[in-house]
């Protein structure tokens, strides 16, 4: 790695950014631009030929999003690290990008020099976040999260009704009969509830629903 330039591929739908960033990177010893693309589709095909060490990706791309591009790069070319260079400073994007497999996230508003610092870190497989972002991500991580208990609020009235019946020990057939719906409809509802509560198995759903109903009863009796 020490003997050759770090090869960088740029994906950004703004030509002026590709041009400026490309010239900036090429102007430094040890770094070179091996290719560039304005959209995710072209990038995916081209990255295979150009064999970069790092791909610099903008989140906002026309067509396939930058997040989906990160996932595609990580699944096809596991040795290629991704660094995000974005206008978006919102946590939502940072978390999505990092979950998709990005190694670093810097802002277009950061100082230009930070690009090399980030590349140097990411090439060593280390996570890099610019200072403003780092604080926000940490703040978000350490804030009090209600976890799955809170996500019950995302259920619709009907899903919540079924969730409560599951928690009360009713099986699909009994719920279908109680609500005058078919068993397959209840099955569909159960799947939706699982998705919303990030639950993987039917057993886990029953366990969580029973626990939730018991907790609610305890809360009620405590209030009395």
């Amino acid at each position: 790695m020490q003997n050759r330039d770090i090869k960088i591929y740029i994906v950004d739908d703004h030509p002026v950014v590709r041009r400026g960033l490309g010239q900036f990177i090429n102007s430094r010893d040890g770094f070179c631009i091996c290719g560039e693309a304005g959209d995710a589709e072209s990038a995916i095909a081209d990255i295979n030929d150009k064999n970069p060490d790092i791909v610099l990706v903008d989140i906002n791309l026309k067509g396939t999003s930058g997040i989906d591009l990160i996932k595609a790069i990580r699944s096809r070319y596991s040795g290629v690290n991704v660094l995000v260079l974005s206008m978006h400073e919102e946590n939502e994007y940072i978390e999505r990008a990092m979950r998709a497999g990005a190694k670093g996230y810097i802002l277009k508003n950061d100082s230009e020099e930070l690009v090399f610092e980030a590349i140097a870190s990411v090439i060593k497989n280390r996570i890099f976040l610019s200072d403003g972002i780092k604080d926000k991500v940490l703040e978000s991580m350490f804030r009090k999260n209600g976890g799955r208990e809170q996500t019950v609020a995302l259920l619709t009235d009907r899903e919540f009704e079924i969730f409560q019946l599951i928690g009360g020990g009713a099986n699909t057939r009994e719920i279908a009969s109680a609500l005058n719906l078919s068993a397959s409809t209840i099955g569909t509802y159960r799947e939706r509830i699982k998705t919303k509560l990030s639950i993987l198995t039917p057993n886990e759903l029953v366990k969580f629903a029973v626990q939730w109903v018991m907790n609610e009863k305890n809360k009620d009796s405590a209030q009395i």
């Binding site: 002026v16 950014v17 400026g20 900036f24 102007s27 206008m87 277009k108 230009e112």
Partner: peptide, 22 residues
């Protein structure tokens, strides 16, 4: 402003860095 002018400033910023380095 966000997707147009903002991106121009980003590109110009990088190019100016190149000039400064030179």
């Amino acid at each position: 402003l966000h997707d147009g002018i903002g991106q121009y400033f980003t590109g110009i910023g990088f190019l100016t860095q190149v000039i400064k380095d030179k």
